[in-house]
Amino acid sequence: MDPQPLLLTFKLASITSILLLVIAMPIAYWLVFGKFKGRGVVEALIGMPLVLPPSVIGFYLLLAFSPSHWFGAMVEEYLGIRLVFSFPGLVIASILYSLPFMIYPIRAGLQSLPASLREASYTLGKSEWQTFVKVLLPNCKPAILTAFVLTFAHTVGEFGVVLMIGGNIPGVTKVASVAIYNEVEALNYPAANAYAMVLFAITFVILLLVYSINNRLLRVRQPA
């Protein structure tokens, strides 16, 4: 078994999850506490990847990323990055595709905190930013951990979007899920099985870890 697709999968999932974490925290905060109209529209847009077939997202991204489209052209001209059939393209697509998996749990975590925590911090003279970083985020650790892992696992399991915009260039865009598909098409079942088993085992271990950590964090919160 060639380990490259597996390594690529985990590289993609790690980079996506870390970037998305940074992007999602302010968006979640804004969704919960922001004062603006049209919240419904924003929420619906973020939730789209949950219901749309990955091939639809992949198709539109393929169009947008292509050098003949203004977006793809702009990125290529100013950043020197071609987004179709490339790793950076996969990262951007994965971020969009996993957006709800990161934002929704963090949003739920922020919503579940009593309003008095935020207000107490304000009356103690702390700014919104200080309150967010020192009070709100540390008290939704379980939600953030869940969000991170869901995003990671969701990116590991990505297939349709990758195939549409990445293809299967070994070492660049050929992730494990695509490799499994290729092996099955070539009737090479033992190889497909090897990739599948590794993905299965690793995702199971990750989820197991998360749930045990979360259970511990939640137990600690219970009053003595």
Binding site: P114, L117, A120, Y122, T123, L124
Partner: peptide, 29 residues
């Protein structure tokens, strides 16, 4: 804004920050 009113507020549910110890709660303030 409340930050600049220089008040103390004691909430019905105490609103202590669960992630901080007693000392850290006071130091935060």
């Amino acid at each position: 804004p409340p930050q600049q009113r220089h008040i103390g507020f004691v909430f019905q549910d105490y609103a202590l920050f669960p992630n901080m110890t007693v000392m850290q709660n006071l130091e935060f303030a």
